[in-house]
Design a protein around this nucleic acid. Sequence first.
DNA 1: TCTGCGTGTGGG
DNA 2: CCACACGCAGAA
Length: 808
Amino acid sequence: MFVEVIVDINHKQVDQLFTYRVPKFLEQQVTVGQRVIIPFGRQTKVGYVIRCVERLDDAQFNDPSKIKSIQALMDYEQVLTNELIELSRWMADTYITTRIGAIESMLPSALKVKYERLIFMNPEHEVQMNLFSDALKDKFNASGHSGFKLSSIPLDSQLFKEIQQLLDEGVLIQESDIAQSLNKKKSLSVQYIEQNIERLKGQKQIECYELIKSRPFDWWTYSDLKSHGFSRSVVKGLVDKQFLEEGYVEVARDPFAHMDVLPTEKKQLNGEQQIVFDRISNDIVESKQQVHLLHGVTGSGKTEVYLNLIEQALSLGKEAIMLVPEISLTPQMVERVKARFQDDVAVLHSALSAGEKYDEWSKINKGIAKVSVGARSSIFAPFKELGIIIMDEEHESTYKQQDHPRYAALDIAIERSKYHDIPIVLGSATPRLETYVRAEHDVYTLNTLTTRANQQATLPDIHLIDLTKEFTVDPQMLFTNPLLNSIKETLQKGEQCVLFLNRRGYSTHITCNECGHVPHCKHCDISLTYHHHSQSLKCHYCNYEEKKSHQCLSCHAQNSMELIGVGTERAAETLGELIPEAKIVRMDNDTTRKKGAHERIFNQFGQGEYNVLIGTQMVAKGLDFPNVTFVGVLNADTQLNLPDFRASEHTFQLLTQVSGRAGRADKAGQVYIQTFNPTHYAIKHVVSKDYLAFYQEEMAYRKMAKYPPYFYMTLIVIEHDDMDVTLQHAHYIYQYIDQQMNKGCYLLGPTPSPVSKVKDKYRYQLLIKYKQQNQMNHILYQIDQQYRSLYQTDRIAVHIYINPDHFM
DNA sequence: TCTGCGTGTGGG
DNA sequence: CCACACGCAGAA
Ligand SMILES: [Zn+2]
Ligand SMILES: [Zn+2]
């Protein structure tokens, strides 16, 4: 038997199938999707089995005896399903990436292996240690003659040379070692031993022994038994009497063990919800591949519909993926799903440790979990019988991975839905225009929820405060009197407020509070980001690093350098002075950095320990507190002014989302938005709660300005040490495209990139707008080919970004 | 003739 | 990607 494998080397030149012989003793165990250890050139590597073949294609190999054998299995179970193997091929083709790159993005990072070379003394060789240098002796003493890692020796050291020499002489030998950072958690556990139960006296001990006897092959941890009411001393007693065997065994971590989830019954769906449920459920039952847009106002009970759909899938013996944006994958959300489906749920969240993520993934891979809830990458959950894929808040940009490889979760979802013949549900109160236009054209099925699920709840009243007429009362220019009065009123009624502050710039940049100077990178046209733990400033693009200085380099003021954009801290302070009775808690990147901090703020606010929650984007998404009746937006315009053609769309989405936090239960909600642009359509339609009106106006703008979804866009960035050379090539590419493209395409540029210099290379860019993707893809492919080879000789780099999300 | 480094190539 | 072969420059 032979296998074709993809080798674990992320490089174009080895991005192909390699054939290996399977030794007799492994034939029964090797399956497709498994990882195996293989000799590759002079190295030892991990390979992914893509295909098993009984016989070779005669023509392909003139000397079959040259085919190497696989050395061993890396794991006993498969890590990729057949479907995911197929999908990896599709991804590699579509996203122009290597097959292995695609595979890596599907698997939990804990499975990533490290290759080491271990140095030993050659047992066949007369080794005289006294000839070794002291440094080498130390190495061997420290490693207890079991070999040490070559990578621990600096390449330019004397010791490295000595080792190289001794390897050549055969005094030392090296072995390759494959290490996985997977620390499986082990716990002290006990197992049944057959004994005469009559020898036991204590009632507790008898009960405990009988419980364990009921599953005689299982290992029980002490904490398992504690939850059954048996203390450590009871169990220890049984161990001492030889009724139980004790040992350390692997246990899956349960990151949600502290969570008290009571099973909940499903709520009765209202009329609209029921109609939507029936329609989508029907596609699950009939295995129909179809994308459904679920357009429901905030608080319309989309989640309840999802949960019912998942339940429907499970009842048919199928599985479900529910994607949730990172930011709203809150404890509240996890709890809600767990309450409904208990242990059937695996949660894949970036805040989990690599080991925890692996354990959750493993539950799916082993078929223990039937439902996955998680962020973007959980779209690759290794289910075998998928019944439905749900993407909540489908407009969130985090569903697109920017690089390595660049992919959109929706594209993956669609590909998977074709394989399984299942429906996809895209839920949002503010769908992307690209999504809604497809629903309008019946590419997707449009489902709408127009009222809030809770009978008593209505959508909140939204008021604008015109900052051109109404002035702020504080030096930070954050609060107007109408806003403050409404906050006071709310607090007097014993209700809670959420205040939303758009972050200004990136909170990781620092600025001089005297002169406004922002430190920039010497090699790139970009401001440096502040890294808290090293107290230094780093360049995001080139890794240049400098110590944070306390003095401003521009105006020489002392101790004037501060983080910009954090804002919420100052805002909270100011509000505390203006309304002393407010009990304020902040929620932003700063205050939620520590593990569990997010959850703590949530709980404290939910229990009424605070009555004002002030924060950034984080407070806009997915909060659901019944006592929150007031939402205030301090600065609505920040996003609107960004140089991005989607600025209006993003503003409308964010303001609608944050407004939706108010009055979700039976108390009416009020929203106040402070803005300098009260007549802008993105803001006006937030007030009128009219998505469709916004959609039409925005579509008209996109059509007029020739932007998506009417046109595709591609950004080409040209990069070189010399500005003239860069510009020269930019012009050449301009002309090339101009000749090739047909009418109805628009070519703009060349202009300097917004980040005009990176790593001392100058950057110019071209922008193309076009309708025919095939034709343009062909042109772009030609350019890519041409410049790929030119990079080797002339160091001219050309990057092509098809349908980019931002233009940096 | 020995050594060191840049470049090129194969890997089943 | 990584290990190794090859060829050429510079030192001895
Ligand atoms: Zn830089
Ligand atoms: Zn200054």
